[in-house]
Design a protein around this nucleic acid. Structure first.
Length: 423
RNA sequence: AGAGGAGUGGCAGAGUGGUCGAUUGCGGCGGUCUUGAAAACCGUUGUACCGCGAGGUACCGGGGGUUCGAAUCCCUCCUCCUCUGCCA
C-alpha cells in the first residue's frame, strides 16, 4: 500500500499517477486519507499525554504505598478513574482512525512509473519490441487442444474426472515436457545468479495481505477453510513473504530468489472464447523469480529481469514481443510491468507467458520489509518479481509452432532434459 | 490428536505485581593502550508512532482481561520441546 507520507509529500504526483490508471475519485480518496491520518495523529498525541499523566500517578501511588501513606494513595486512585475513561475513548478514536486509514489505503493502487503510458485496456499497451519470426505452418495445422489429444500427452477429461475443469493430467511425453521445462528454467535461473527456494504452497492470511492478494483478490484464491490457509496463486506470495517483518542490511541486497511451484487460481467468472485448452487453468506450473533491491537499483533490476526472461524465450526459439503495460491494464500493486507474449501460430494470437513487475515500496510497506544502510537508517526496500516462466502457454506455443506432419519437434535446449527430440 | 513443559532485546539467559525497555554474559559498534593486532579497560548498542523541540507513548510469541500500576496474575489463540498415538 501507499505510504501516507508519499501522498502528503507528493500529492500532485500521486494524484496524476492514479488518474493515469483511471482510478475513480482519486482526489476524494487521497484527501480522505490525509484527513484520517491527521485524526490518527491528533488522537494519539492526546492519548499519549494523558497516558503519561496516568503513568506518573501510578508511580506516585507505588511510592506512597511503600511509605505506608494509604490515604494519600487512595486519593490518587480516585483521580485515575476519570483518566481511564478518557484514555479508553481516545484509544477507540485513534484505533478507528488507524483502521479506517488502512482500509482506505488498501483500496488505492500503486502509483505508476512515469514511463507507464496512459490507457484503459490491453489495447493501449505499448509494444516495446518484437523478436523472432512467426513460423509458417502446414495447411493442416492444429491448435494445441487438438494436438494434445492426437498425441495423447495432456488429458483434460481425466482431470475433470478426478478434480474438475481446468485441472489437466499430463501423460507420457507431456509429463516429461513439464518436468524438462521446470528443470530448464530452474537451471537457467541458477546460472543467472538466483538462489533456489522451495516454499510452501499454502499460505496464511498475513502472507496474502503482505503481497497484496488480500483483500483485493480474495475470491481468486482457493481457501482451505478448516485451517484458514490459501492455496498460492503464484510463488510470488510465499517467496516475497519470506522477507516479511525483516530488516536486512544493505549488503544483503539485492536478494534474488527463484522458485518452482504449482499455482492455483479460481479464475471465477473469467472464462470465455479465448481460454480453451492450456490458455487458462485452475492449476498450472510456474517458475518465479523474485528480487528485493535497494530503491536506487530497482529499475535496473527490472530491466535485467526482462532481459533474462527474454533470453529464455530466445533459447526456446519462440517468437515473442514485450509490452509495457498501460495504466489501465497494469496490476493493482505494480508501478511498472512488462508482459512477455509468445506467438501461438495455430491460434494466431499472442499469449502472455510472463509478467515482470517492479512494486517499488508498495509491497514492502505492507510487508515491513526494510534494510539498514551504512547511515544506520532503516528504509523500505523495493520488491520485484516475474514469471520465468509460466508453463502452460509455453507448452501451447511449443506444440503449435513446432508441429510438422511427422510430429512435434522439441527445442534443442530441452532435448537433454527430455531424452527425446520429437513428440 | 492426547498429556506435560516452554516462548524475554542479534544470541544466550535473569527477572513472578510498582522506580523494568528490562540484571548479566556473548556478539556488534566507537574509543584508550599498541608499529599493527590480540588481550585488557572505558563507552555505546532494538523497533514503531506522536511532538518544531525538550521529550512522550507503545512493544517481554499474538489478541483480550484483572489492577491506580502487568514481562510478572487470568482467559484465548499460535509456535516450539518431551512423552503417548497416528503417519509419508
Amino acid at each position: 500500500m501507499l505510504l501516507v507520507n508519499q501522498i502528503r509529500e507528493n500529492y500532485i504526483g500521486v494524484l496524476e499517477g492514479l488518474q493515469k490508471r483511471n482510478f475513480p475519485n482519486a482526489e476524494t480518496v487521497l484527501k480522505q486519507a490525509l484527513e484520517l491520518d491527521d485524526l490518527r495523529k491528533s488522537t494519539q498525541t492526546q492519548r499519549d499525554q494523558i497516558q503519561a499523566e496516568s503513568n506518573s500517578i501510578s508511580k506516585q501511588i507505588g511510592m506512597l504505598m511503600k511509605e505506608g501513606k494509604k490515604e494519600e494513595a487512595e486519593q490518587a486512585k480516585n483521580r485515575t478513574a476519570e483518566i481511564k475513561v478518557q484514555i479508553k475513548e481516545l484509544e477507540e478514536q485513534n484505533s478507528t482512525a488507524e483502521e479506517e486509514l488502512k482500509a482506505l489505503l488498501y483500496t488505492i493502487p500503486n502509483v505508476p512509473h512515469s514511463s507507464v503510458p496512459a490507457g484503459k485496456s490491453a489495447e493501449d499497451n505499448e509494444v516495446v519490441l518484437e523478436h523472432g519470426t512467426i513460423p509458417e505452418l502446414h495447411a493442416d495445422k492444429q491448435p494445441h487442444w487438438e494436438l494434445i489429444k492426437k498425441y495423447d500427452i495432456i488429458d483434460f477429461d481425466l482431470g475433470v474426472k478426478i478434480t474438475g475443469a481446468g485441472f489437466p493430467v499430463y501423460k507420457g511425453k507431456g509429463a516429461r515436457l513439464q518436468r524438462a521445462l521446470i528443470n530448464f528454467f530452474l537451471d537457467e535461473a541458477l546460472a543467472a545468479g538466483f538462489t533456489e527456494v522451495q516454499p510452501p504452497i499454502l499460505v496464511n492470511e498475513d502472507s496474502g495481505y503482505g503481497t497484496g492478494q488480500l483483500p483485493d483478490k480474495e475470491g481468486q484464491m482457493y481457501f482451505a477453510t478448516a485451517d484458514n490457509l490459501y492455496l498460492i496463486p503464484t510463488a510470488e506470495v510465499p517467496i516475497t513473504n519470506l522477507y516479511r517483518d525483516v530488516i536486512l542490511s544493505e549488503e544483503d541486497l539485492p536478494i534474488r530468489n527463484v522458485g518452482y511451484t504449482p499455482c492455483f487460481r479460481r479464475e471465477a467468472g473469467s472464462w470465455g472464447a479465448h481460454v480453451r485448452g492450456l490458455n487458462r487453468l485452475h492449476q498450472f506450473d510456474k517458475v518465479e523469480i523474485v528480487q528485493i533491491t535497494h530503491p536506487d537499483k530497482s529499475y535496473e533490476a527490472l530491466e535485467s529481469m526482462s532481459a533474462y526472461v527474454q533470453s529464455l524465450l530466445q533459447k526456446l526459439e519462440l517468437p515473442y514481443r514485450v509490452l509495457r503495460l498501460c495504466g489501465g491494464d497494469m496490476g493493482f500493486t505494480s508501478a511498472l510491468t512488462y508482459d512477455m507474449e509468445v506467438f501461438s501460430a495455430a491460434q494466431e494470437r499472442w499469449l502472455e507467458v510472463s509478467s515482470v513487475s517492479n512494486f517499488e515500496t508498495y509491497q514492502t510497506n505492507r510487508l515491513k520489509l526494510r534494510f539498514k544502510g551504512s547511515d544506520k537508517k532503516t528504509q523500505l526496500a523495493h520488491s520485484l518479481n516475474g514469471s520465468a516462466l509460466a508453463l502452460p502457454r509455453i507448452v501451447a506455443a511449443i506444440l503449435e509452432n513446432n508441429q510438422t506432419p511427422d510430429g512435434i519437434k522439441m527445442p534443442k535446449v530441452l532435448q537433454p532434459y527430455l531424452g527425446f527430440d520429437k513428440i
